[in-house]
Write a protein that binds this DNA or RNA. Structure first.
Lengths: 117, 117
DNA sequence: TGCTGTAGTTACCAAAAAGAAACTAATAAA
DNA sequence: TTTATTAGTTTCTTTTTGGTAACTACAGCA
């Protein structure tokens, strides 16, 4: 039993919850699970993400020590993103989220149909 | 290899991702993991949730077949919420999220301090 | 000479999310 | 007779979010 409690409004763990219970976070961490990738690669992979949202998400993850950002001082710029040790501990979690979503979508869609009727 | 791909913008699994990669969803499912609860109980447990957000979250989860809502036609009203079979398959996932948050908050806070300096 | 490519930042605007407060119904208790 | 109770809904307002477009640097290529 720790001092932290996510059910308490003022507990800082709420901030962590906000970060990882986030669509783009799940997709970014999943995309970086196997290999280092450049900004443009991520942008293309995360279909539908805007440049702004991707930058924001990556900055947040970098700040939280989940993603490592390596900048090459070249022109045109080159920036590589990878998971930190801490970030790697999230991989299992986000893959479970993905598998759950892809594995239960049919049930969810059926439930929605039933509800809407 | 299924027909679903969460990395595709138009894939309906994105909707499921939006639902479960959500702060209140994580907390609600966690709160209902062990027992059926009434609306007011949930409201008190989920510190900081507004009535409106809780209602919205519960409706969404009910629509997706994750939460079951049982209404007693009494006055004052009584409504009980519980997890469906589908909802129960989410319990492990949301508990992992909670444990990760509570277990890594210190590392995250330290990383933030470093980044902000 | 001028166009392309990369990984951003910034400003602006529209849309959506979320908070606050007021209102409901019928019964039981004070 | 008034009041409290429960689980909402509704309206209004504020805040946050997110999208679009414009701008940057400089090397390489036609």
């Amino acid at each position: 039993m720790s001092q932290w409690d996510i059910y308490n409004k003022n507990c800082p763990t709420r901030l962590v919850l906000d970060r990882i219970a986030d669509k783009w976070t799940v997709l970014v961490v999943g995309a970086l699970a196997t290999e280092t990738k450049r900004f443009g690669q991520l942008r293309r992979e995360l279909d539908g993400v805007s440049q702004k949202m991707l930058t924001q998400t990556l900055r947040g993850l970098e700040r939280d020590g989940i993603v490592y950002r390596k900048v090459y001082a070249t022109v045109p710029p080159k920036v590589e993103y990878s998971l930190t040790t801490l970030g790697l501990t999230l991989v299992n979690l986000v893959e479970t989220v993905r598998y759950w979503s892809e594995g239960n979508i049919e049930k969810v869609l059926m439930a929605q149909k039933r509800y809407d009727a």
